[in-house]
């Protein structure tokens, strides 16, 4: 909105600007850490991945949705999906991808990271993941990819068991 007169509006005086010095500051932190659970559905997902190297999903027949990551309920209709488990092969397609040059602190990373969202075949879901064994220039949208898992003895039932996805041979 324009001021009623032609004069510029008055800018309120900021006290710290008067003495032209940086304000004194002190540091603080929220001293907490977190313990997370994977949940009823997540626990089954990661335990199965660890033991059998496949993804488990749940399905709502009414909404025709297959959930990956799996959920114990359908988010559209609230159907109980806790008895609808099935396994799918850990393969999919690169839905979209990017090459990340800057880290969280805004610094240039030593080597860029190739990141993709991979849709898993036979599901309505997918995973954000790393792409492995491929030059960034060679990645194509909808390229078929397969899961690369950590060796069985090193799997812990967490996301770190998934090293990434690579071109499906």
């Amino acid at each position: 909105m324009r001021p009623a007169s032609d004069q510029a509006p008055t800018v309120p005086t900021v006290l710290s600007a008067l003495d032209q010095v940086e304000p004194r500051v002190w540091k603080g932190a929220m001293p907490v850490q977190f313990l997370y659970t994977a949940g009823a559905a997540g626990e089954r997902f990661f335990q199965t991945l660890k033991r059998k190297g496949v993804f488990v999903v749940t399905r709502c027949e009414e909404c025709r949705l297959t959930y990956l990551p799996p959920r114990i309920y359908c988010e559209r209709c609230f159907a109980d999906l806790s008895e609808t488990w099935r396994e799918v092969a850990p393969v999919g397609k690169v839905h979209t991808h990017t090459l990340v040059h800057v880290d969280r602190q805004g610094r240039n990373a030593a080597s860029p990271t190739l990141v993709a969202f991979v849709r898993i075949d036979g599901t309505d879901g997918g995973l954000v993941t790393r792409l492995l064994e491929i030059a960034p220039a060679d990645v194509r949208i909808d390229m078929p990819v397969e899961l690369v898992l950590a060796p069985k003895r090193r799997r812990r039932g967490t996301l770190d068991d998934i090293i990434g996805f690579r071109n499906r041979r």
């Binding site: 659970t37 309920y73 109980d80």
Partner: peptide, 19 residues
């Protein structure tokens, strides 16, 4: 004291029962 379920899953239990 400590649920295996995520907050989403706990919410679902309560909300679906209310419905």
């Amino acid at each position: 004291r400590r649920a295996l379920e995520t907050g989403k899953e706990l919410s679902y239990y309560a909300a679906s029962q209310a419905l």
